[in-house]
Design a protein around this nucleic acid. Structure first.
Lengths: 95, 95
DNA sequence: ACAATAGGCAAGTGCTAGCTTGCCTGTCAA
DNA sequence: TTGACAGGCAAGCTAGCACTTGCCTATTGT
């Protein structure tokens, strides 16, 4: 967690993948919104701190950016880093 | 390692990513060939057992298949599972 | 001003992934 | 058939990750 995490480690955790799913569904959610959604619709029951730490990992991997607005923190999804995966191990075309 | 690993956990480890790189460069290598290549050209110095365990993880994730030929074990790369990632979090088109 | 809201920081804990070590099985050449 | 080669299995160790707990800061509403 010290230093910059890579995208591979970032998406290794199921909870972090759900966070990406949530932001893909509705971009620009706050920490509390993400906590609520994960608890309500995804059956996750981690603490707010746990979710916050997960978001920090996603952010240091460049998959999420955040900006404070008043007392809330808004999160945005960035999927461009995933391009590295498809370029590194190209998927053969469907026949 | 019990049960079937998912692709996310599989590519979380740097050594396993190098194994995929090696198979992408030259498909159909044996365990010993992969060990040698990783040691020589990638600066990895893990034991044969470690590499074998990594290959087992990749295989249970569906990224690698193997077949015994005589006393050697040949490994093949399969990148189709990566399609899940790009379909789950689509990458916006470059502009 | 004061309480409630939204979030941050840091130390501590439990569990599991990655690795090693030691020994065993199967295959090929002489 | 005997030794060398290619690989498998299982137990044990260690470091790091995910998570919690406790306390702190900043912003908003009344």
């Amino acid at each position: 967690m010290i230093g910059v995490a890579d995208i591979y480690a970032a998406i290794a955790d199921p909870t972090r993948r759900l966070l990406l799913d949530e932001l893909a569904r509705a971009d620009g959610q706050s920490l509390f919104e993400l906590c609520s959604r994960l608890t309500m619709t995804h059956g996750v029951n981690s603490s707010r701190q746990a979710i916050s730490q997960h978001l920090a990992v996603l952010e240091s991997a460049g998959l999420v950016s955040s900006a404070r607005v008043g007392r809330t923190k808004i999160h945005h999804l960035h999927t461009e880093p995933f391009r590295e995966i498809t370029e590194r191990w190209p998927i053969p075309a469907k026949d």
